[in-house]
Structures are given as C-alpha cells and as structure tokens.
Amino acid sequence: MKTKLLLVLSVLCLFLSSCFDVEETYNLNADGSYAANYNLNMGQLLNMVNSMTPDSVKQTKEYTTVKDTLVNLGSMPDSIKKKFSAEELAMMKQSDVRMQMNMAQGIFNIGFSNKGKSAKELSYFLRNFGNALEKGKVGDMMKPKGVPDEAGGEPEVPFKNKEYDYVVTPTVFERKVKLDVFASVKEKDRQTFDMLKGMNMKMISTVVVNLPRPAKSVGNPNAVLSADKKQFTLKLDMLEALDKPELLNFKIEY
C-alpha cells in the first residue's frame, strides 16, 4: 500500500510544474544568440519509492527497463504539426528533449534544450515553449510504464512559465512572478505540497545565466554572481518560495 501511494505521489509530482529538482541554464552570447537548457531531476522521489518497493516488483520488466532517449521536437507527426503556427514549428525544430530513466538506480531525468539567434527568439521561447509542448502531447512520453492508472490522466508538461512574466533584451534578462497565477497554482496543488513538506522533501530550483559581459545589477539579494560577474546563479527551495514568491524575481542588467 505504501509503495502504491509513493508511486502515485511520484507521478502526480511529475506532472506539476513546481515539483522537481530543476536547473535552468541560459547561455547568452555577445552576438545575441543563446542556448537554453532545462533539466528536471526526480531522483529523490524514485529513491524513496525504491526503498519501499518489494523485491518481486524490482524484478519485473517495467522496473528494470533502462531508457536514454533523445528526440528532436520538430520530428512530430504531420497530424500534430498541423496544430502549430510557423513560429511554433520553428521553435520546436530548434528544441530537443532527452529522457533518462533507470528505476532500479533511482534515476529519472528529463532535459529540454533550445537554441536561437536573438533576444527576440529567447523571449518567444520563454512565453510559448510550455504550451507548445502541451499542444504536441510531449507529456505523454514522460509517464513511466507500470504506474497505476489512477496516478495518470492527462500529463501536465513542465515549464509552461505561466507563473512568470519575462523581459529579454540585449541588455536585460528579467523574471517576475505573476502573483495571482502563482497563488492559484499553490491553492490547486496545496495537498500535494503540504504532503511533500510533511515528508521533509526539498524541491530545489536553480537558475543559471551565463552572460556575455559583467552584470551591473541582479535585483535579488539571494542571487550569487561569479568573481567576474558573468555568471548569475539563483538557488531556492520551491516549497519555501510558495510562501514568499517574491524570492523568485530577478532582473539582471548587463
């Protein structure tokens, strides 16, 4: 029963945008081009599942299967491509998803990457990538086999960025929480978040921005700048940020 509960919790957590250990990395170049990488790690939850999983289950094919898959998101079937605008298709062609899964070793990582040529493209990516993932049903590939049906349903893909407004220019990278949207998400998923807090879980969010020149200001006292001021790092526990969403704001001027 406990194993089943943890499996359900794990999958529910997988489909919540704030329920991962997440690292976002943005490499901004002097010519305006960029590379964005999102990495999601569910290892601590799977390790908890492993500790309570019977040996008989650990011998099953679903449990022992190891996956490491890289897919270009522009390779979707024509039937799905019809749903996208030309701009969305161009963004998806510049984007990849990688899924690594090894239940026995407690590994479940999902990575998204995107490259573009300008601040305008990065701004478009931040506003539209999550919704495009959902439209392309990318979330369907994230649900592990062998999970109880009651834990499933329609997967909600991460990184919709619906809780944030972004401003991206050749000299500014800014993120600001939409307080009303954030409060709505918190209320909707309150039971799950309270359960995770009760289990002493931490959901670490790390944002790293590598700049083409030194930062002049960062707009967040918890952020850390490298010695040459070209790397911005903000690391927070999302479960703590639920009560202080302003901690998620930053404005990097460089």
Results as ranks from 00 to 15, higher is better:
Val185Asp: 05
Ala151Asp: 10
Ala215Leu: 04
Glu246Thr: 12
Lys143Ser: 13
Lys178Gly: 02
Ser217Lys: 07
Asp243Gly: 03
Phe250Leu: 10
Pro170Trp: 06
Val209Lys: 00
Leu248Thr: 02
Leu234Asp: 00
Gln231Leu: 05
Pro245Ile: 11
Leu211Asp: 06
Met203Arg: 15
Lys162Glu: 15
Asn222Tyr: 09
Leu225Arg: 05
Asn210Glu: 11
Ala183Tyr: 03
Met201Gln: 13
Ala151Val: 13
Gln191Glu: 14
Gln191Thr: 15
Phe173His: 04
Arg175His: 09
Val172Lys: 06
Ser226Ile: 02
Phe182His: 01
Val172Phe: 02
Ala151Glu: 12
Val181Ile: 08
Lys202Gln: 15
Pro221Leu: 06
Ala215Thr: 00
Glu156Lys: 14
Pro221Thr: 00
Phe250Asn: 02
Val181Pro: 07
Val218His: 05
Tyr164His: 01
Val218Thr: 01
Lys251Asn: 10
Asn220Pro: 02
Leu242Lys: 05
Val209Asn: 07
Met142Trp: 09
Phe173Pro: 04
Lys145Ser: 13
Thr192Val: 15
Lys160Ala: 11
Met199Leu: 10
Thr192Asp: 09
Gln231Asp: 07
Pro155Trp: 13
Arg175Asp: 05
Asn249Thr: 13
Asn220Thr: 01
Lys197His: 02
Pro158Ile: 15
Leu179Glu: 07
Lys244Pro: 01
Thr171Asp: 10
Lys235Ser: 13
